[in-house]
């Protein structure tokens, strides 16, 4: 038996799961379909240091069938307990994670995350990258979902250029900051500003 948890672990989930997760998913869908666009999400109050957006993404996507990896400062007792209660997701090492969560520095080296298999490229990791700020400026994005060109404040470009070079293999990223999120699927071509 583990020690009794703080009761705050029990709160911070969706109050109306079916409706709130539907709205949250539509934000995730819009973000992934249109790389670089900002989406605002609400409804989760995860323990520090997780952002609202990262909490919403976990509540919407993670469940007992989805192995989650917590990187660096995100791996706290409170976060583990919150995920255990609200998602029931098993916590695993980086190599076997379907979803990995942490700051960009904490997630390094990103090459350890699953890129999928050549015949099943969908079996790859989704990285939830916590950023101090998220704006539609910085690195240039082109590719599916982008009419001409988009911009996104990526933490770096080299890793994403390398990730695109492996297409259709690769990881997909959700960037979160406060209640804002944006996505960068592996299909996006990233260029330095």
């Amino acid at each position: 038996m583990t020690a009794p948890q703080d009761a705050s672990v029990l709160s911070g989930g969706f109050v109306e799961p079916a409706v709130q997760s539907a709205h949250a998913f539509r934000a995730l869908l819009a973000a992934m379909a249109r790389p670089g666009t900002m989406q605002t999400v609400t409804g989760a109050q995860p323990p520090a240091p997780l952002s609202v957006a990262a909490g919403v993404a976990l509540l919407t996507l993670a469940d007992p069938t989805v192995p989650v990896h917590l990187a660096g400062a995100a791996d706290t007792e409170a976060v583990r307990a919150w995920i255990a209660f609200h998602c029931g997701a098993p916590l695993v090492a980086a190599e076997s994670a379907a979803i990995a969560l942490g700051t960009w520095d904490a997630l390094q080296p990103v090459s350890r995350f699953s890129m999928g298999l050549p015949d099943y490229p969908d079996r790859s990791a989704t990285l939830i990258v916590e950023l101090p700020a998220l704006t539609a400026s910085g690195a240039h994005l082109r590719g599916p979902g982008i009419r001409d060109r988009a911009e996104l404040s990526l933490p770096e470009t080299a890793a994403f250029i390398a990730n695109r070079a492996r297409f259709p293999l690769g990881f997909d990223c959700l960037f979160t900051s406060g209640s804002t999120l944006a996505a960068l699927p592996r299909s996006t071509i990233v260029e330095n500003a």
Partner: peptide, 10 residues
């Protein structure tokens, strides 16, 4: 939903 997000990515 997880399948849809991967489908959009590939």
């Amino acid at each position: 939903r997880r399948a849809l997000l991967k489908a959009l990515a590939i």
